[in-house]
Amino acid sequence: MNQQIKPSHKRVVVTGSSGFVGKFLVEKLKTFKEFSVLPVARSFKTNFNEDTVLVADISKLTDWSEVLKDAELIVHAAARVHVMDETAVDALSEYRKVNVEGTIALAEQAAAAGVKRFIYISSIKVNGEHTNNREPFTADESPAPIDPYGISKKEAEDCLRDISSRTTMEVTIIRPVLVYGPGVRANFQTMMRWLSKGIILPFGNIRNKRSLVSIQNLCDFIYICLEHPCAAGETFLVSDGVDLSTSDLLKQTAEALSVKSILLPLPSQFLKLAAVILRRGDLSQRLCGSLQVSIEKNKRLLGWSPPITIKEALKITADDFLEREK
């Protein structure tokens, strides 16, 4: 990890510690002797460490007093995450219960307990859904969330800024793009499985650009934000710093898996039409649309650049996938 900042010994609370990002972050922060890390997970989770503090489902009623004892820094990664096929009748209301009301409750109690800095893991969906026919998203442009998840994350950000403005607690907001790495699931895992089995894929002619971030680079950036003085009160986007088309991502992932990719060069318009017919316009956007972010602010304010390359990160991810698939 990047070691530009040398923090004094401090207690760091990490919520969502049983999740993909939280679990990796906890293990990385534990390698730094200057930190005392307290993992926090919801009580219905099962994949947590023995030292994890369990809390009830996160809401406006959650009592965080046990968690906040002696806490100086918080990384709030717990959330009601985005799902592709939302089934809730009032999805926005369900997202708000955890992502807005639950976050406010934690932040208010944290500020009252004397927590110095609150790092909120938000989402690029606060910026919007795509960057087709425009420049990459930047951290300080006006947000334009569309779906309930993105709206709830934006509302939480606004509430955190308000709490920070009337207390002594600093707030830093981080909006990651798609995160991948060892143990990744969902679409990224499916993609690796297709490639490893030699399945012919119709994605050989997609010329979009998408930003990704490896779990290693994301957690390194969170580490830097824990105490860097210039991170206070700021919002950041984070990525690997190099954007790939869907076609290039498939080719590079196949190389990492030591297999040959078989990609048919079908026109992207054909794929978009097929997605519309199948009522999967969301999938079409992910495969054919662009979503790019700028990390120039990270470099300028914090002196941060991604410590590992996409090629290195994909190799680590692929090796872990192959080991798990044995």
Rank of each mutant, 00 (worst) to 15 (best):
N2R: 14
H9K: 15
T15L: 12
S17T: 11
F20M: 14
L29Y: 13
K30R: 10
F32G: 05
F32Q: 06
V37F: 15
P39D: 00
A41E: 06
R42C: 12
S43W: 03
D51M: 11
T52Y: 15
T52L: 04
V55L: 07
V55T: 06
K60H: 01
L61Y: 14
L61T: 14
V67C: 11
L73T: 01
H76W: 04
R80V: 03
V81M: 12
H82V: 00
H82C: 03
H82S: 05
S93I: 01
R96C: 04
V98W: 07
V98K: 10
V98C: 11
V98G: 09
E101N: 09
A107H: 08
Q109L: 10
A113T: 07
A113I: 00
G114C: 13
G114H: 09
V115E: 07
Y120K: 05
Y120C: 12
N127L: 13
E129D: 13
N132G: 05
T138S: 04
A139F: 14
D140E: 05
E141W: 15
P143K: 00
A144V: 05
P145G: 13
Y149T: 05
K153E: 04
D158M: 06
C159K: 14
C159L: 06
S164W: 02
T167K: 10
E170C: 08
I173K: 02
R175N: 13
R175V: 13
G183M: 12
N187D: 01
M192I: 03
S196L: 05
K197W: 06
I200V: 02
I200Y: 08
L201G: 03
P202H: 15
P202I: 13
N205T: 09
I206H: 08
V213W: 13
S214H: 14
F221T: 05
F221N: 01
Y223K: 06
Y223R: 10
Y223V: 03
I224N: 04
I224C: 08
L226D: 03
E227Q: 00
C230L: 02
G233S: 07
G233R: 02
G233N: 05
E234C: 09
D240P: 12
V242G: 00
V242K: 15
S247P: 01
D248L: 06
L250R: 00
A254E: 03
A256N: 07
L257S: 08
L257N: 06
K260D: 05
S261G: 09
S268W: 14
S268R: 07
K272I: 07
K272V: 01
A274K: 11
R279M: 13
C288Y: 09
S290W: 11
E296M: 10
N298M: 10
K299W: 01
L301D: 10
G303W: 07
S305N: 04
S305A: 11
I308R: 03
I310H: 04
I310Y: 05
K311T: 09
A313R: 08
A313G: 10
T317C: 01
T317A: 08
D319K: 07
